[in-house]
């Protein structure tokens, strides 16, 4: 990453942005599947019950906060790791 010059950096920047969006989409579908698996288990009616509604809300909120926290720790640990590698 250190050897990329100006033009390469611009190309790479575009790639990174595209990847971030893709990752976001992946996260979204993963979240939907997870909340469905955990919360919705009763198929006696075609629409969600209120209990399932609240469960899905909480599930998605919790998962996003969890992801953010993991992201923070991941960054810290990564930085530590690269520092150790460079030593």
């Amino acid at each position: 990453m250190d050897q990329l010059n100006q033009r390469e950096q611009q190309d790479f920047q575009r790639i990174v942005e595209g990847k971030q969006m893709k990752d976001f989409m992946r996260l979204y579908s993963n979240l939907v599947e997870r909340c469905f698996n955990d919360c919705v288990n009763d198929f006696t009616s075609a629409s969600l019950t209120s209990k399932e509604n609240t469960c899905v809300l909480k599930c998605s909120e919790k998962f996003l906060k969890h992801s953010e926290r993991v992201g923070q720790r991941f960054q810290e640990q990564n930085a530590l790791l690269t520092q150790q590698m460079r030593r």
């Binding site: 990453m1 250190d2 050897q3 990329l4 010059n5 100006q6 950096q9 990174v16 942005e17 990847k19 971030q20 969006m21 893709k22 990752d23 976001f24 989409m25 992946r26 996260l27 996003l64 992801s67 953010e68 992201g71 991941f74 960054q75 990564n78």
Partner: peptide, 27 residues
Amino acid sequence: IEALESKKFTDDLQMQNVLGVYYNNIH
């Protein structure tokens, strides 16, 4: 200048710009 800029590039390439969870994320 080039060396500084490339260093800045790698420093800016933090997780916030890479991971999907931070896409359009106000936090």
